[in-house]
Amino acid sequence: MRRLVAIAAAIAVLSACEREDREFRPPPVGTEAEAPVTLSSIAPGTGPAERPGEMGQAYEENAYHLSEGKRLFTWFNCKGCHANGGGGSGPALMDDSWIYGGALLNVVQTIREGRPNGMPSFRGKIPEEQIMQIAAYVRSMERQVPQDAAPGRNDDLMPRPSEHRLPARPAVPGGTVPPSGQAPQ
């Protein structure tokens, strides 16, 4: 029994090491451009469109990257439009609807390239690695990351339940209709 406890403790400690691991030279992320990053659930021919792969997953499982993402989310004024995930002039990020896809690489592309209904392009303004960290944090807002890696409560005014306390809710595939009203033409 005692041995079992010791093994369990050792596993817990080791996994915690993984969670807290700080990669000062993380793997290059530039190759992400070659990964399938599709916005549609359908493709001509047989079978559904290829969905974004698991590239960048390490960012979502690492508490350091997520907490850096949370800091940068404020630092680069993401918060000014998206608030603490509930949205404002920009759409909500803590719900399950994603206009331009909710996979990590979709979010990375949204930040880097911008989107036509008001999302600015941060290409050349934010280093790639920090974009990955911000995107991973955005995914944590609706708890699409492991609970033990998601950030805890803020030091500031408590705006919402902490990221690690929300129930996990996967994104609805295929994006949604943009909230902006469509003009009749």
Binding site: G86, G87, G88, A92, P159, P161
Partner: peptide
């Protein structure tokens, strides 16, 4: 009009 999420009390400023 913007489909905001009321779980965030700071949404829409």
């Amino acid at each position: 009009s913007g489909d905001l999420d009321p779980r965030d009390s700071t949404a829409a400023l």
